[in-house]
Write a protein that binds this DNA or RNA. Structure first.
Lengths: 160, 160
DNA sequence: CGACTAGACGAAATATTATTTCGCGTTACG
DNA sequence: CGTAACGCGAAATAATATTTCGTCTAGTCG
């Protein structure tokens, strides 16, 4: 799929203001509402954008603990990775999981109601491959910059 | 602000389907459209939910490199933290930044067009407090679980 | 116990927005 | 040139959001 400047603008706007109306979006990118809607649908069908998330303010809802955990696997076989990933995915409190190269193998973000329950999740993950998993936990103290979309303009510039 | 079961349902739905229509949402949570809209607005005004993000599929847009970086500061003074955080925030490619306790001090997610440019960002961050910053970079190979909202049900259960 | 108040709800009316339809212009290609 | 394919926008229609308003309920005070 070939994207022009207008498509890029649509993606930029939509990634930061998912609930914008089609009319407003059309105005911003300089299209008629119908043309704009056509484009948005094509972008969605091509899965270039979506899902659309509402970011909940956890801190205002209840006390909770967010932990970033790094994982090292003693046995770095494909099979071991597969096992661990599957287990991690299945745990709702593991909100994010990445396989990385570097001084550890996986990275996770975990949100739990309190430390006691985080401990339980940690134990559960350690039990997936007993003795083969090393988890290093880091409690999030505060978050100077929350994710709110990718730097599309910078990435496009870099792409040319 | 006091939340009941309906408010929680609204938050659950909205966090995963931000572009849902008010009518559909009202049906799902068992309210009339007008009551539902009232609640959504109150939730937004209280900043319990929002912003609304459209998640862009980076991989389908262009090649890019995502790095998770851990940062240690030699001088752990408040001032040093403040300097580094400010610098990190100001860089668009740093899409996320957390201050943590544990074997490192900060955690960042960085998205760059390629390694050359990642290197430049890395250098830029090292120069903020010359000789005082230690950055460990980990290229993301793949992502078994992408963030798509918090486990609100589990957190509420834990809260009672 | 009864009356009053505040708050929340839903039905219905209205305003806004989404979506479809269709004709026009532009471009690519024979 | 002629033609087909495509994308655009205007306008009509359908769906949705938003406001208004009367009703109900729970809580409170006399």
């Amino acid at each position: 799929m070939q994207l022009d400047r207008i498509d890029r603008n649509i993606l930029s706007v939509l990634q930061g203001e998912a609930r914008i109306t089609n009319q407003e979006l059309a105005d911003r990118v300089g299209l008629s509402p119908s043309s704009c809607l056509n484009r948005v649908r094509k972008l969605q069908e091509a899965e270039l954008i979506g899902p659309y998330l509402g970011i909940v303010n956890l801190a205002k809802l209840f006390r909770s603990v967010t932990v970033v955990a790094t994982v090292s696997l003693k046995d770095q076989s494909t099979e071991a990775f597969r096992c661990f990933q599957e287990a991690a995915q299945a745990i709702p409190e593991v909100v994010e999981c990445h396989v990385v190269s570097g001084s550890f193998d996986l990275f996770m973000r975990i949100v739990a109601p309190d430390m006691l329950r985080y401990n339980a999740i940690n134990d559960q993950l350690l039990d997936v491959l007993p003795g083969e998993v090393n988890i290093s936990s880091h409690v999030v103290l505060h978050t100077p910059k929350e994710f709110s979309g990718y730097p599309l303009n910078e990435l496009w510039e870099g792409y040319n």
